[in-house]
Structures are given as C-alpha cells and as structure tokens.
Design a protein around this nucleic acid. Structure first.
Lengths: 222, 222
DNA sequence: GAGCAATCGAACCGATCGGTTCGAAAAGGT
DNA sequence: ACCTTTTCGAACCGATCGGTTCGATTGCTC
C-alpha cells in the first residue's frame, strides 16, 4: 500500500480525537515542515531528521502518517500541484474583448507562476524528473493543461466572433503563453531573478506580447 | 585552494608521463564518468562510489584530480557550459534576409538546446539553484547571453537595413527566442518529451514563430 | 480523576556517505 | 632490466542516512 488511508477534509478543523495518522491538522503540519525543507534543498538533500525538526513532530509520527520519504514527497508535490492549479481557475471569466482578455489572462497567469511557491515546487520537481517520471509528468501536465485549455477556449470564442483569425488554436495558445511569460519564467527558474517581478514589469512584458500576438492573429477590420 | 592546478591542453593528446593529477586524458575520463552519474540522478544522489565505478578509476585518483565532490561537480558544469556555448557560436554567420535568418537561427538554436546533454545539464543545475546560486548564475548567464547577443546584433542589422521595425531590440530578441523554442524546451525540461523533436517538428514550430514575429516587426514595404 | 490512545523523543539498526590511507600493481622513461 | 612515480583497490574512518522500537508524556473523552 503506497499511501495511508486518508480521509480528506476541506480545511483542517480544530483538532479533536482522531485515530493515529488521521488528524488533518497534524498532517498539514508535517507537510508544511516538509515543504520548507524539500523546497530549499531538494529531495535528496532533505533529511527526515531535518523534516522532523522543521515540522515540530516526532519522527515516529511522520511514519505513522506517511509510508516513508518518497510517500511524503509525493503527497507534498500533489498538494502543491493542487494549490497551483486552484489558483489559476478563473483567470478568464467574463472576458469578451480579445486584447483585453489576453492582457488579463497573461498578467494573472504570470503573477501566479512567478510566485516563490510555484517556482520552488517546479525546481524541486525538475531536479528529480529522470527518477520520478510519473510524478513529474503528472505534476506538469495537470497544471499546464488546465491553463492552456482555458486560453484555447477563449481564443476559439474570439475566432467565432471574428475578432481573431487563427488556424491552429493550440499552437497560438502556446505561443501566447511563451510570449507573455517565457522570459521572466526562465529568469526565475534559473535563479537569475530571485524575486517575482512586480505587477508593473509583468504588465509591460505582457502588453508587448499582446501587441505581437494581435499583429499576427488579430482581425484588421474593427 | 578550490581547484588543483590544471594546465589546460586543447585536446587530450596521447598520454605521456604526467605529474600526478595532470593527465588531461585521465581528467576527461573522470569527468565523463561523473557526467553520466550526475546527469542521471542529480548532485546529491550521485555517490562518489558510483562515480568511481562509472569512471573506471580509483577513488583515490579522483581525489588527486579534484578537491572533492563539490569541486568535481563544479568542474563538470563548467565543462558542459563551455560545450553548450561553443555549439552555438556561429548560428547566424552570413545571414542577410530577416525571415530566413530568423528561421535558420531558431532552427539551429532549438536543435541544440533540445539535445539530451543540454537538457540534462540544465535540469541538474536547476535542481541545485538555491544551494549553488553562483555556479548556476554563471551557468545560465553565459549561455543565454551569448546567444541572445548574436540575435540582437542580427536584429539591429535588419533594423538598420529597414527590413524590421523594432523599438526595443532586447525585448524583441527575447520574444523571438521564447516564441520559437519555449514550448518544446519546457516539454523537454519537464520530462513531457523524452526525446528531442526531429528537425521537421522544430522547423514547423519555428516557421510559425517567424510568421508571428514578422507580422509584428516586419517592414510591410518589400 | 481514570482510562485509553496518539504522540513524543531518545535510542537503536544496518547501510551508505564523503573522504583518507597505504601496500601492491602498473606504467613510463632511461 | 631497473627505477621512479602514478594509479589502483581494498580497507578504514566518523558521520549521517532512512527507518524502527518503545517507555514516557500528553491530550481527549467519559
């Protein structure tokens, strides 16, 4: 069995009496501590002793909640993936204008993807890609698929309303994401930019990206 | 002293009699073995025993050539960085036409940056960014700066010849790199694409990128 | 307050880690 | 063939690793 039976609660509530290994608050406490260690030094250099200290629990307790280091890491990355995906769900609600919608989408998306949490998680995941292909595939796929689907739907609506002329929606969506977030994202990932850029900087890059995108795909007749 | 004195030779020549730790062929042998381990399992999970076996030398010999695991890793990443940078030096020699030059540049750049060597090295480096900020900064800066400089010069020349209309050359260069390589690069990095795409696939994506770029920056009068 | 169970924390285990040591073997030069 | 030096490879060292054990402490329920 690769995971302890875990009954999902929406939010950690006030601790009551739970069976051993079933307390959601204690589970979150362990994951929070583990996150601080894994995201700083990566999977291999993170020791269970360090995580024990950081989480403020007993090592034995960690092993009651998780099957081992691998399981703890997997649970953490799943949680982080869920958090990232959740934070990007409603970026394009209610948008009707092409350029404005794209601007809003990219500005929001860029801000989220540049956050320290997101960058750290991705870096840590990238570090173990060859050894944990399934976990990493799951981590990156779920995230990017969700966001790109949202953008693709938006582009299709704009095409249907004759505001954009796009043959290959999938490619256009990818191009726009790369145009609007590619540079800063790489700078963050590679450690060249140690803090997320402020909203003004993001907006400037996104505006330039929208301009390029609209030049290529925008309908000239307005 | 952070490195053994090392006299650089251009190519490992036929071994003669070298002082201990000075044989370039032996040094390369160690680095090759180390590369195969580091690039597979990352810095921390790579053990000196594994590297000893993989390199086919004695552990004591490794310590004659390098000061320790950190030093060996640093030397390897420096070597790899140099190899990557060297492989991208003449991507834009002799190009005069804007669209054609961009197509050639991006096709060549994309092919190089998708290679397993490059991707592995980047992944391994990303995995230790927070712990080795100087080394990683050096690794990523030298590489991307060199290529972008080449592209920026090219764009400036096209602007001077009235073939492109670009206000911010630096941003335009970044946009083009992201447009033409961003998607596949991320897929490779995240492990979604386990092999480098073939030249045809690359060309298709690059062509679409050139079209978008020229739509935004190309001079209409031809 | 009593009873029960979750958690604590210290000790333990076998394995592996990075790095060191040194006699034996191998390699190169004369 | 001899001599010198480099390298080998096995053993060693103290430290740390992930995981296990278990009496003591704590917290919750009745």
């Amino acid at each position: 069995m690769s995971d302890k039976p875990y009954v999902a609660y929406e939010t950690p509530v006030q601790s009551g009496r739970f069976a051993a290994g079933e307390d959601p608050a204690k589970r979150e406490q362990i994951l929070d501590g583990a996150k601080r260690v894994f995201m700083t030094v990566g999977f291999d250099a993170a020791s269970m002793n360090d995580i024990t200290r950081e989480a403020g629990v007993s090592k034995g307790t960690i092993y009651v909640y998780f099957d081992g280091k691998d399981d703890l890491f997997r649970a953490l990355m799943e949680r982080e993936r869920g958090n990232i995906a959740r934070s990007m769900q409603d970026v394009l609600d209610g948008q009707t204008d092409a350029a404005e919608g794209l601007q809003r989408f990219a500005a929001a998306f860029a801000a989220r993807i540049m956050r320290e949490d997101t960058i750290s998680a991705m870096r840590t995941m990238i570090g173990v890609v060859p050894r944990m292909p399934k976990l990493s595939k799951r981590f990156f796929n779920a995230d990017s698929l969700n966001v790109r689907t949202v953008l693709e739907d938006f582009i299709r609506r704009q095409v249907a309303e004759d505001k954009l002329a796009v043959d290959d929606v999938s490619m256009a969506a990818r191009q726009f994401i790369d145009l609007s977030t590619g540079t800063f994202f790489k700078l963050r990932l590679f450690g060249d930019l140690s803090e997320a850029p402020d909203q003004q900087e993001i907006d400037a890059v996104v505006s330039a990206a929208v301009r390029v995108f609209m030049a290529a795909y925008g309908r000239k007749s307005q």
